[in-house]
Amino acid sequence: MAQIFHRSTNTVAKVTLFGAVFFVAVAGWVAATLDRSAYSTRQGVVREQPVPFSHDHHVVALGIDCRYCHTAVETEAFAGIPPTTTCINCHKLIWNESDMLAPVRASLAEDTPIRWTRVHDLPDFVYFDHSIHVAKGVGCATCHGRVDQMPLVYQAASLQMEWCLECHRHPERYVGPREQVFNMAWKAPDQATLGPALVAEYHVDPRTDCSTCHR
């Protein structure tokens, strides 16, 4: 009597058994890696803007404070994108014929907003408020990286939930003095002692319940 199963079935069976564990594990690893990659998070990816605005030039070279443009960051959830008139405060007299700034002048003349491309875009199911983070001593650079040194803005952090939770679980590793929040270059001389002291002083108590952010 001929064999019911072909000889190769042995191999197939072994591969299938192995595959159940190995291939599923690989698929999981690939999915997790893709999800954390810049392809998914857009971390470190420069977004094209209608005007190539340089934070590096305006902050480092000219010394303009973050809050000159992002006026709502201390009081509101949204830090605020400056209206065209803020650009015009200076650019009415400086670089006022530059081609690069033509969209800014057009925006003013036609009273239409400049369509900036949003760089830090949290999912709509996340509640986030800038003002409380600023009030508790989380520096701009802690989340946004050295924006002051970026000729074109990109997202410095992944903005994934595991990244949020790292600080919500261990605020003492990141919290700094309130008066240094807007100092992009500030580094704690000794975060290990300063961090816990500030967490106690500022009553930093970041919740990690689901409903803290997903409300």
Binding site: V12, V15, T16, G19, A20, F23, V24, V26, A27, V30, A31, L34
Partner: peptide
């Protein structure tokens, strides 16, 4: 081709 079943499943899952 039975061997491709896990691969197909993984691809679908992705």
């Amino acid at each position: 081709m039975r061997t491709s079943a896990p691969l197909v499943a993984a691809a679908l899952a992705l």
